[in-house]
Structure formats: structure tokens, C-alpha cells
């Protein structure tokens, strides 16, 4: 019998997914602060539709002198909203209910694939267990307190409530990505400083990452804090390049960044161009 590793290699709420294309990418698991508002929105919609639908059906069939039929249909509507709302939406809307859609979260299997209809229905039927203790239960519509679900969710890596555990599903945040261009530090001293860096100097991958992270965030720090942070990398580099002792470490890192990421001409000769894998649009 396989023994579960006692220590998961997960660092925070990001989890890695390997796609069928054999690419790894990561998702952010949705915590209670994404899921609670989504639940409340759905609850509002369900209660609203249930009450309005019932009144509407009663009125409509009342005018035809068949109020019992209206009431019966109202009951069926109530039942469907109580037990079938989440399952139907998650199955037909690709893992989202209206509330989840507003909050930008989605239900996926633990492998990161789309869920099946059965999983959607089951995790919503089991919702009543997660919702316990229910102080107030309006014909199975809720609202529930979700203490049991919260307890179960906080005991595992993927914030899965009991219904999620039974179906092998999880809820992830689907961020709307926003592409910022490269940060371009525009202090005038950077240009001359970049020219003083020896042309043969090669920036390693890890150093490139560090430079990019530093330049992206440096504006958020005070001048003295920047000096303090930049010094650790800039000081050895300054000595290696033989630059004067009063060289500004912050600007030196910016100059390196400029040369690595931005400069139009490549002093090391043209690197092989990377072909784009996308065929031209038909």
C-alpha cells in the first residue's frame, strides 16, 4: 500500500498542473474569501428566483383558476433550486455558477481537468453536509453556516470541502491575466553606466530573474532601502567591473537590467532568433 508523503511539496496556495501537452503551469486555489461571496451571490439568486417564481406561478395559474397547479410547480421549482442549481450550472457552464463567475473562480478536478456532470451534481448534493450546522434551513435552500466544510477545507492543501473530497474536485481562482510591458527605468545616469559594463559579461539565468524582480519592484521602496537591497549584488559586480567606489548600486543593477532586457543592439553578436510556433492567421 502506497503511503502518502507526510510532507507535501506545496509552498502556498499555488498548485502545479501538468497538461496533456506536457507543459506545467500553476493555479491558485480559491480560499474561503473567494468562495463565501460566490455562495452568498448564488444564495441570493436562488432565494430571489424561488420567491419570485412562486409568486409568479401562483398569480399566473390563479388567473386561470388553478392556483394548486401553480403552487405545485412552485414546489418543484423550489426543489430544483435547492438541490439542482449548483450541479446544473457547474455541469453546463464549465464548472461555474453565476456566483463563481462573478468571483472569477471555477471548479476543476484535482488534476486540473474540467469536471464531469456527475461530479458537479454530487458535490452539490453533499453541500448539505458541509453546510452543517444549519441554524436556519429554508426548505433545503440554506443559508448554512458551513463550519464543517470550513473545517474540512482547512485540513487539506487544496481547500477541498467534504463534497470536493468525495468527487475529487477543487475550486481555483481564474485570474484575468494582464500583460504589463517590461519595466523601463528611465534615470538618465543608466545609459552611461551601462556603457561601462564590460561587453563580455554574461548575465546568468538566476541573475536575470533577480534583476527583473528587483527592477519591477524597486519603485515601491525608499531610496535608502533600495541601496541596502541592491548592495548585495551590486558591490561584488562593481569590484569585478572596476567601477569607482561611489557608483550607485541601485543604478548599476538598472544598467545591467537595461543591457540584458532592453538594449536594442546586442554587443555579443546576434543570438539565434526564436521562431514563433504560431502559424500566420488564415
Amino acid at each position: 500500500m502506497a503511503v502518502m508523503p507526510a510532507v507535501s511539496d506545496q509552498l502556498d496556495t499555488h498548485i502545479d498542473i501538468v497538461t496533456p501537452e506536457n507543459t506545467a503551469f500553476e493555479y491558485r486555489v480559491a480560499g474561503p474569501f473567494h468562495r463565501l461571496p460566490a455562495y452568498l451571490i448564488d444564495l441570493g439568486i436562488r432565494l430571489g428566483v424561488a420567491v419570485l417564481g412562486w409568486v409568479g406561478l401562483l398569480l399566473a395559474f390563479g388567473f386561470m383558476y388553478m392556483p394548486e397547479v401553480g403552487a405545485a410547480l412552485g414546489l418543484v421549482l423550489w426543489f430544483l433550486l435547492a438541490w439542482g442549481y449548483g450541479g446544473a450550472f457547474e455541469a453546463l457552464w464549465n464548472g461555474q455558477t453565476p456566483g463563481k463567475r462573478v468571483m472569477g473562480i471555477r471548479v476543476l478536478t484535482v488534476d486540473g481537468q474540467a469536471i464531469g456532470g456527475m461530479q458537479a451534481v454530487l458535490r452539490n448534493v453533499l453541500r448539505i453536509v458541509d453546510g452543517q450546522p444549519a441554524v436556519f434551513n429554508l426548505g433545503y435552500l440554506g443559508p448554512f453556516t458551513y463550519l464543517l466544510g470550513l473545517l474540512a477545507a482547512s485540513a487539506n492543501d487544496r481547500f477541498q470541502r467534504l463534497g470536493d473530497l468525495a468527487c475529487g474536485t477543487m475550486v481555483v481562482v481564474e485570474d484575468r491575466p494582464w500583460l504589463f510591458g517590461l519595466v523601463n527605468p528611465n534615470e538618465p545616469a543608466i545609459g552611461p553606466l551601462a556603457a561601462q559594463i564590460p561587453p563580455g559579461f554574461e548575465v546568468s539565468r538566476s541573475m536575470a530573474r533577480a534583476l527583473a524582480a528587483y527592477v519591477q519592484h524597486r519603485r515601491a521602496f525608499a531610496w535608502k532601502r533600495r541601496m541596502e537591497m541592491a548592495r548585495h549584488l551590486a558591490e561584488p559586480l562593481r569590484r569585478r567591473f572596476g567601477l569607482p567606489a561611489d557608483t550607485n548600486p541601485d543604478l548599476l543593477l538598472c544598467a545591467l537590467y537595461h543591457r540584458k532586457f532592453l538594449a536594442a543592439t546586442d554587443p555579443e553578436g546576434p543570438a539565434p532568433a526564436v521562431p514563433s510556433p504560431v502559424p500566420a492567421a488564415g
Binding site: 503551469f25 474540467a114 481564474e174 485570474d175 517590461l182 532586457f261
Partner: peptide, 17 residues
């Protein structure tokens, strides 16, 4: 740079879904 990598993670995740 890390910001672009993060963007790509989100883009690929969104398209995957």
C-alpha cells in the same frame, strides 16, 4: 521576467479551461 511568467501561467490556465 517573473511578471511575464506569471502572466503566462494565468493565460495558459485560462485557455486550458
Amino acid at each position: 521576467p517573473p511578471a511575464t511568467v506569471q502572466y503566462l501561467h494565468q493565460l495558459v490556465g485560462r485557455a486550458h479551461n
